[in-house]
Design a protein around this nucleic acid. Structure first.
Length: 467
RNA sequence: GUGGGUGUAGCUCAGUUGGACAGAGCACUGGAUUGUGGCUCCAGUGGCCGCGGGUUCAAGUCCCGCCAUCCACCCCA
């Protein structure tokens, strides 16, 4: 038999064996986001193409070559969302959410689509958890998002991650990148645990433009020596030259002017605010003046969380402030800040850390039957139990008793109820405890009550053990 | 879009310089125990050897094309 179809390129099934981890991440993320005051919003997976083109920037790679765009039967141009911020901003404006008390902090969780060459940590459909806060321009917003991200990652990595430990804080220096003549090397692993937080500020639009011009002036004499990619970056998105991986380009950027030296008074104050709050929270970060985010809308604070547990695509999460996007979409002037976390990348990283054992499915009770009378009686009882929330299974294929019990064992059943012909004839069944092998005989009438009671107490002790 | 690696059983992989019916471990099914799981032993099911073409008496093995996958560039979460 040869299979006729397989999944499209670059997309992946999330299999039963991985689903516990997905749930663990989603549940932790939900509860933490909600504790920080964020409420969930679900936007459609596709939008008018123009939303992304305007929001993300026509010149970005995402818009110019990575979007899944199609026209529907009426010829409307639609695009599968490549990111979550633009749709959330759209929904925020469309429904006037700023007038709804408590609706200025939103989070989302779901699939995104980008047409890219698949790679470690990069698929064409991937999942993001993201948060956006609209309104307050203050550094607390930026800081709280980084703090939230940090603690979410730490909680998920369990073994203790990004720092908090005294030793790690001892290593901590704001000036790590300053002292090393702004050559961005990878941060020392021993100082950062599993995740590293990179922080930068691009300043407001005027700082940004001033800096870009300065950078161009610096680069102009040796543009011709830069790699081909950087030559085109020089015109289209000059700052991007900063994070080129080409070693030659890197060394030429060694003495380049730094964004942080071009921040205006307000931007500098804002950034100091963010840094101070993070320091207060005991969060270690790397000041990374070469951190340039690819989306056009960022202003002021940008941040990125990387992990050395990942491949070349080492960013687990990224975000920053975008103080003009809402306005650009036709809304009132509304500063905003947000981040997104890549689920698949997080999982990749988490797989490099020892994880709590998979709980596995536990089917509390299994009904093993002999003969057709037993079979129909068992089926009725099984259904009753299921409807009372007690997981129950039985074999439908007329297997031998031996293999039915083997099945029960593999399903992890706590009890196996054996419907033998002899017992049935006297109105009873055998209740076998799988852990110990202890067996007792009960009447058919009482068996479902017994199982419901035992399930309830078993659940309690199970919860104590597994949380 | 560009480069390199890899496609043999459900999974992990052997398969010699082209040569007879394509193999192992794990998993699955059954038996040893005609009514009792895990351990052990025995047996069995399961492969268009990624797809298409070519060279040859002969191709899993060599050549070409395509597809998929992995890794990297690029870009980002």
């Amino acid at each position: 038999m040869s299979i006729k179809f397989q999944s499209a390129r670059g997309v992946a099934d999330i299999l039963p064996s991985e689903i516990d981890l997905w749930h663990r991440i989603e549940n932790n993320a939900r509860s933490m986001l909600e504790a920080f005051g964020y409420t969930e919003i679900r936007t459609p997976v596709f939008e008018h193409t123009g939303l992304f083109a305007r929001g993300i920037g026509e010149e970005t790679d995402i818009v110019s070559k990575e979007m899944y765009t199609f026209s529907d039967r009426k010829g409307q141009l639609l695009t599968l969302r490549p990111e979550g911020t633009a749709p959330v901003v759209r929904a925020y404006l469309q429904h006037n959410l700023r007038m709804d008390f408590g609706a200025n902090k939103l989070y989302y969780l779901g699939p995104m689509f980008r047409y890219e060459r698949p790679q470690a940590g990069r698929t064409r459909q991937f999942h993001q958890i993201g948060a956006e806060c609209f309104g307050p321009p203050d550094p607390e917003v930026d800081a709280e998002q980084i703090i939230l991200l940090f603690h979410l990652l730490e909680r998920l990595a369990i073994k203790g991650t990004a720092s908090l430990s005294k030793e790690a804080c001892g290593h901590f220096q704001y000036s790590f990148f300053r002292q090393s003549s702004h050559t961005v090397t990878s941060p020392p692993k021993e100082a950062g645990g599993y995740f590293q937080i990179h922080l930068n500020s691009l300043g407001c639009r005027s700082c940004h433009i001033r800096y870009r011009d300065e950078l161009r002036k610096y680069l102009a004499p040796f543009v011709h020596k830069l790699c081909d990619d950087c030559k085109s970056r020089f015109n289209s998105n000059t700052l991007r030259v900063l994070d080129c991986k080409n070693p030659d380009c890197k060394s030429m950027m060694k003495d380049s002017p730094r964004v942080l030296d071009f921040l205006c008074h307000d931007c500098d104050g804002h950034f100091s605010g963010v840094k101070g709050l993070l320091k207060d929270a005991g969060i270690q970060y790397y000041l990374n003046p070469h951190l340039v985010r690819g989306l056009d809308y960022y202003t002021r604070t940008t941040f990125e969380v990387t992990s050395h547990l990942l491949g070349a695509q080492n960013a687990v999460a990224g975000g920053g402030r975008y103080d003009h996007l809402v306005e650009d979409f036709g809304g009132p002037s509304t500063p905003a800040c947000g981040f997104a976390l890549g689920m698949e990348r997080l999982i990749l990283a988490l797989k490099g850390i020892s994880q709590p054992k998979d709980k596995g499915r536990v089917c509390f009770s299994f009904f093993a039957t002999l003969g057709s009378e037993a079979r129909s009686k068992a089926f009725r009882l099984m259904t009753k139990l299921r409807l009372h929330g007690v997981p129950a299974e039985m074999d439908y294929q007329g297997r031998t008793l031996k293999s039915q019990i083997r099945m029960a064992d593999r399903l992890g059943s706590v009890y196996t109820i054996i419907f033998g012909e002899e017992e049935i004839s006297r109105g009873s069944v055998i209740l076998r405890q799988m852990g110990t092998g202890y067996q007792e005989e009960c009447t058919i009438d009482e068996i479902s009550d017994i199982l419901m009671r035992r399930h309830a107490s078993w659940l309690e002790s199970y919860k104590e053990m597994h949380g």
